Computed example of a mutant assay.
Amino acid sequence: MLGYGIALIAIVVLAFYGLFIYPHQRARRVARRPFPEHWQRYLTDHMVLYRRLPPENRPRLHRHIQLLLDRVDFYGCAGLAPNDTMKVMIAAHGALLINGLSPDYYRNLRSILVYPGAYRVREQVLDGDVLSHSEQERLGESWQEGRLVLAWDTLSVEAANPDTPSNVGLHEFSHQLDQIDGASDGAPPLASGDQAKHWQQVFSEAWQRRRRHPGGDSVIDDYGATSPAEFFAVVTEAFFLQPRPLAQQEPRLYDCLVRFYQLNPGEWPETAATTD
């Protein structure tokens, strides 16, 4: 019996170490690694938002990139083999969203599937007793079980374009933030009940306005009107890509995003020079 008790205690101790202590120790070691200079040059040359990010924010971004690269498995699809710089570019978009937050916001993210371009998905649609099939062309997806799917050509082109109104990387990573609690409902984890209540009111009103008034000169893409989850993803894109117009058109919404992300892209420089 004594031997059984000792073995049971050892199992509990090892499980506790593996679940709680080792991951934090590993994360600290990863975060202390120097961020390779050629990765910095690559991001400077190919990612507009990296150039716009204030220099004092970049060390934290670098740490979060390395943590994501350590935690997440990348899989190439349709013949693509993601190389290190591709992985860094993808991870940089996820890291940018949590630049003011904790890397634990991606604790559920396990894998990223990368296609060379748009890919087709076959879906089953049940309408009453009728089951039909359809094919959709997609650029990205986010799954609650911790999986992202991205089209590399779209992500890389949008990352380098200073005038793009969309960014598939920001869009899909924001879905992961939304899905932390298991529900894709446009409400990521917030700091307090009061903040959550305020968020719900402001976002609901802004979403309903977008549904009632499609098109126009809004920087919030019409796709955001399809559901609260897509609205959160679309306004996140606008928050980083077109912060000043968003702040003018939806000041309360913009303020909610500033408070959640703990960032204010409207104060960042609009343009930044590339390296020679």
Rank of each mutant, 00 (worst) to 15 (best):
I11P: 06
V13I: 08
L14V: 09
A15M: 13
A15T: 14
R28F: 10
P36Y: 11
H38F: 12
H38P: 05
R41W: 14
L43F: 11
H46G: 07
V48W: 07
Y50T: 06
P55R: 15
D70G: 00
R71Q: 02
A81G: 09
H93R: 13
I98H: 02
I98G: 07
G100K: 11
R110M: 00
V114A: 07
P116S: 06
R120K: 12
V121Q: 09
R122W: 02
E123K: 11
Q124W: 10
L126M: 10
D127W: 02
D129I: 03
V130F: 00
Q136T: 12
L139Q: 10
S142P: 04
E145S: 09
E145W: 11
V149R: 07
V149K: 01
V157G: 03
N161V: 00
P162I: 08
S166R: 15
E172A: 02
F173H: 03
F173A: 06
V202L: 04
V202A: 03
S204I: 00
E205V: 07
A206N: 07
A206I: 04
R209Y: 13
R209Q: 15
R211P: 06
R211T: 03
G215P: 13
G216D: 10
I220T: 12
D222C: 12
A225G: 10
V235Q: 10
F240S: 02
A247L: 14
E250T: 12
L253D: 07
L253Y: 08
Y254L: 03
R259V: 07
Q262W: 14
N264S: 14
G266V: 01
T274G: 12
